[in-house]
Amino acid sequence: MNPWVYGVILVLCAVAAVLLLVHLVRDAPAEDGIYLVLGSAEVALLVQLVWGSVALADTSREVSGTLFVSYLVGVLLALPIGAFWSLAERNRAGTAVLLLAVLTVAALEVRLDAIWSGAGA
């Protein structure tokens, strides 16, 4: 796995989480700027899916391929699901759901890194 892509994804998740917390405290729905950050994170996740699949094919590590690829696909789906839910609920609950989606992506990224490192299969 590429550490740069991993870092970019975590930074984008942190930025989105801070913005969403501010909106949650202000009792405001998520704005377009937040969706731009999430779109950027989604592009980075797509790059990670391709890069991770290629790296998995080229590695001689003891990595469970099925587990690793399922995490790559699962993390790719978390943000769109949260975004659609947030757009359907244009209130504080929708913002909270989007925040949970962002935190889920961050947690899955940490787990992906652990799987790639061989710390848990």
Rank of each mutant, 00 (worst) to 15 (best):
S70C: 11
V105T: 04
D58F: 13
G52N: 01
P29G: 04
T59M: 05
P80Q: 02
Y35F: 09
P29C: 00
V5F: 04
S40E: 11
R111I: 05
P29Q: 06
G7P: 05
V8L: 15
W116D: 00
G65V: 07
N91K: 01
V69M: 09
L38Y: 03
V47Q: 08
S60Q: 15
A17C: 07
R111A: 07
A119S: 15
Y71V: 00
G82N: 04
V75C: 04
T66Q: 14
V25D: 10
L67I: 10
V75K: 03
L36I: 12
S53R: 10
S64A: 15
L76I: 07
L100Q: 09
W85F: 15
R26Q: 12
L77A: 13
Y71G: 02
D113I: 05
L100S: 11
A101S: 07
A41K: 02
E42D: 13
L10S: 06
A30R: 03
L76N: 07
Y71E: 05
W85Q: 14
D32Y: 07
H23G: 07
R90C: 03
V75N: 00
I115Y: 04
V37N: 04
Y6K: 11
A44C: 07
Y6Q: 13
V47A: 11
I115K: 05
L100H: 09
A16N: 01
V18H: 08
